[in-house]
């Protein structure tokens, strides 16, 4: 056991990258690694979100807690979050959570003076720190910036007013989903599709067409020239085994062989906008590293040995 290294060198290949969307391949590692990355992205990458609301005036139809809950869920740009302090460990304010190192203050003042309903949106939140502001979606595709006014918080009719002060703090998704920077983080095993060409050739064009159509997603197609079945998009395969069942039903067992590649994953990451999707991945790796460091740092102590036993020894060796 001792001395043998299990170390692997995973490779990442980025396929598509937008501000709030990232698709990449993660190869030469196993499910535990991929899943750890996913879990950290969802739950442990810190962001900033509104945590405390002091309401001065609220004559809207929604009650105070309702508005506070809605404000909490507004994503705030959180590039600063990694360098910020958790207000519970902040020395500057004695855990009060109101100092500049651990908090950002917001103000909202809205009153409806017209007969038309006034939409109070995230744009009406004024931040004390220009780096921490509500996420602006106007530049992303599909939105017309002129009509898009941010995330709606409450609607006011004539005479109604909302005035409040809010404190945003750093936190992680484990504590509350409002601190989670990830809208979607998911991965799939890359499928390995092998068509038995010999057997496939025994099929008529009509049978091929039927077989291809049996897949709910467009994985296969027929080459219009050669009339050969080709794999057009292996990643569209959802492991539904419809094609295998269809082949069996046609009496062509083993027409296609589909296995999941155990060591390569295709990740899809969508961010809430709090941080860029690419940054989310980097932050996640950083957080993961810190967590491993926390384990490693305590390796000298006896209790760590007791705690981790063989694992601790393994880590020291590796």
């Amino acid at each position: 056991m001792e001395g043998k290294s299990y170390q692997r060198f995973p490779k990442v290949k980025i396929r598509e990258m937008k501000d709030d969307y990232l698709k990449f391949e993660l190869r030469e590692t196993d499910a535990s690694m991929a899943n750890a990355l996913r879990r950290v992205m969802i739950a442990e990458v810190p962001t900033i979100a509104i945590d405390l609301v002091e309401i001065e005036v609220n004559s809207s139809v929604l009650n105070d807690e309702f508005i506070a809950h809605r404000l909490g869920l507004v994503p705030l740009t959180s590039e600063r979050a990694m360098s910020m302090r958790f207000s519970r460990d902040c020395d500057a304010c004695d855990g009060d959570g109101q100092c500049e190192f651990c908090s950002v203050e917001f103000h909202l003042r809205a009153k409806c003076h017209s007969d038309q309903t006034l939409d109070v949106t995230s744009k009406d939140l004024y931040s004390s720190d220009h780096t921490v502001v509500p996420v602006d979606f106007s530049d992303s595709a599909g939105y017309d910036s002129s009509e898009n006014r941010g995330i709606i918080i409450v609607k006011l009719r004539r005479g109604q007013e909302l005035r409040l002060r809010a404190i945003a703090r750093k936190g992680i998704g484990k504590d509350h989903a409002k601190w989670s920077p990830a809208a979607t983080v998911t991965f799939m095993y890359e499928p390995d599709i092998r068509i038995n060409e010999e057997l496939m050739d025994t099929l008529t064009f009509e049978e091929k067409r039927n077989w291809v159509d049996s897949s709910p997603t467009k994985v296969f197609d027929i080459d219009p020239n050669t009339h050969q079945v080709v794999v057009v998009d292996p990643e569209a395969y959802t492991y539904d085994e419809e094609v295998i069942k269809k082949a069996d039903a046609m009496g062509k067992h083993g027409l296609v062989d589909i296995t999941a590649k155990e060591d390569s994953f295709i990740f899809t990451v969508e961010s809430t906008g709090a941080i860029k999707a690419s940054q989310l991945l980097l932050n996640a790796i950083e957080v993961l590293k810190q967590k491993l460091d926390a384990v490693r740092l305590s390796d000298d102590t006896v209790e760590a040995d007791d705690q981790f036993g063989e694992l601790g020894a393994h880590m020291r060796g590796g």
Partner: peptide, 27 residues
């Protein structure tokens, strides 16, 4: 409709465990 939208006709999905990251044995 489900098949059209890329789901299985029977409403079952291929699911991964959130704890281990491995696919579940059943749809």
């Amino acid at each position: 409709t489900l098949v059209e939208k890329g789901f299985s006709y029977n409403g079952k999905d291929f699911i991964y465990s959130g704890i281990t990251g491995c696919p579940l044995q059943a749809y």
